Amino acid sequence: MYSKHEDDPNLCTAEKLIRYGIAKQIHRYSEIPDCSIVLNPLANKYLKSSDRIYIEKCGIVAIDVSWKRGLKILRKIRKGNHRILPILIAANNINYGKPFKLSTAEALIAALLTTGFHEEAMKIASLFKWGQQFIELNKNRIERYMLAQSDEELEQIQRELFSISISQNIKIIDLLHKYVVET
């Protein structure tokens, strides 16, 4: 967990995961393992089930920064295999029902489920009142995303799940990047 400690530590899901010993604090970019999966909303590739091999070998890194203030940090990190999550719906108290606005814990739960680490995802979910609801709310989406073998397939699945009928020339990943930068 790379955290800039921008949130109230009592409300921050990343801080809670560190306190419970589920996540290890990373203090410098250089501590990010080269072969790890780095969850980054500015990444150019989606997280897929085939990324499991990287997580088994080197782990998964969540970057806990404010999207508004942390864009420079998200762009600066070079280590690891950067991946973006496909569209999911938040269940946390602050952003309930909103797409894209996942807490750090929700992002980790989704990443772990997508890559087949069900037990680890359930352990994290159990720490939060909304944890199980997040899983239920996104269960069908995550199951569909797990089947995708390519970024193109993930793009198509998202178009179907969310009835997105934008031009085929515009990629959903580009819309996700635009959303991160503008919010």
Rank of each mutant, 00 (worst) to 15 (best):
Q25Y: 09
R52E: 01
K24L: 04
K76E: 13
L47P: 05
H118M: 09
G116D: 05
I109K: 02
I94G: 03
S50N: 10
L39K: 13
A111V: 13
P41L: 13
N44K: 02
P86G: 07
I18R: 02
N92T: 05
V61D: 04
T104C: 03
K16Q: 02
L102M: 07
Q25C: 13
V61Q: 08
F117W: 15
K68S: 07
K123A: 08
E56T: 14
S30H: 12
A91I: 06
P86H: 02
E119D: 11
N93G: 09
K76L: 12
M122H: 14
R83S: 00
L85Y: 00
L11S: 03
K68W: 06
D34K: 13
I32N: 12
Y20A: 14
T114L: 15
I109F: 08
A110T: 04
I26C: 01
C58D: 06
L108Y: 02
N95G: 01
L11Y: 15
I18D: 10
I37Q: 02
I84F: 00
L112R: 11
K72L: 10
K16M: 13
P33D: 01
K24P: 00
I77E: 06
S50A: 10
E119I: 08
L113S: 01
V61F: 14
G116H: 08
Y20I: 08
G80E: 01
S66D: 14
P86A: 04
R69A: 15
T13A: 03
D34T: 14
Y46P: 10
S50Y: 06
E119S: 15
K57V: 09
S49N: 12
K45V: 04
I63E: 00
F117R: 06
S50C: 13
F117V: 06
L88A: 03
M122W: 06
G21L: 07
F100R: 12
N40W: 07
T13P: 02
K76P: 05
Y29G: 10
D64A: 00
E119Y: 09
I60E: 00
W67R: 11
A105R: 04
A14M: 11
N44S: 02
K57N: 10
R69T: 08
